[in-house]
Design a protein around this nucleic acid. Sequence first.
DNA 1: TACTTTTCCTATCTATTTACTAGGTTTAAT
DNA 2: ATTAAACCTAGTAAATAGATAGGAAAAGTA
Lengths: 148, 148
Amino acid sequence: MKFSKKSRYGMIALIDLAVNSKSSHVALNSIAEQNGISPQYLEQIFAALRRAGIVKSVKGPQGGYLLNHAAGEITVSEILEALEGDYRFESEQASEDSKNVGISAAIQKLVIDRVNQELENILMNLTLADLEKEYLDHEAYGQDMYYI
Amino acid sequence: MKFSKKSRYGMIALIDLAVNSKSSHVALNSIAEQNGISPQYLEQIFAALRRAGIVKSVKGPQGGYLLNHAAGEITVSEILEALEGDYRFESEQASEDSKNVGISAAIQKLVIDRVNQELENILMNLTLADLEKEYLDHEAYGQDMYYI
DNA sequence: TACTTTTCCTATCTATTTACTAGGTTTAAT
DNA sequence: ATTAAACCTAGTAAATAGATAGGAAAAGTA
């Protein structure tokens, strides 16, 4: 099981944006370069994020991307939904057989619905601001402080 | 996001086994037929379940499969691990760049680790017996009782 | 022993999805 | 006019999932 690279790159790029687009826009190429992502692939990712209203863009020289809302308003759930379509586990139709229908319903209720509910619970309550803070705290510790 | 068909078929087949292998073994073909699964594909699934010690088999005429432990001892976590390899979300190595390392670590800690912990929590505490009971309760209601 | 029914094993095929590449068009700052 | 950026669409290569094929081995029954 895994998050697609698309989702992972998207999260990385957005944390980067959260940190760096406070004052001005950030060019896609610089995000791609700093994080080791193919610029053309990242373009597609930003297209999806823009369509979902998560980032906005400014064209032309000195243009670039910035967050469309405050980082605290952007949930990881939204981000994954924009990039994965839907991150929840799919319900699947049982075949016509009646035994199968009952078994599938049991799996749906006890496994899939429960997992999806917890996934939502985690991901809807986690924002870019939380990720940004975690990143900045860690950076400060690792780079600016000495171990006493 | 989805559970693979392999996992889904595996869970279906094992619930079926839990219900029907109380007294004697059940032939793979009958499970396949009753649940609309390709017998040859289901064979591969049972091979993995057998290697994981979840089912045991009896060869020859009147042979078949049965659960290797009581249904209450078999967790959904075990089943998915046998079929998916590992159902947890993968950690992924960041590239060498130091910014990326920090961002990746934040994602790992706040998203992936949290999700994995909840997944485990749900799936390790859910047994085949729970699924069997949910199925049987539902069947009894739907088929044997009248709505008053 | 012969026959049959089952599991067991391994190789192959096909469709889908993922990750990425290519090659342009449009917008707007200088 | 030039240039630096976003924007758009199509294509492609590799991996994975899902399934198929064809038998070999085991064990019960006649």
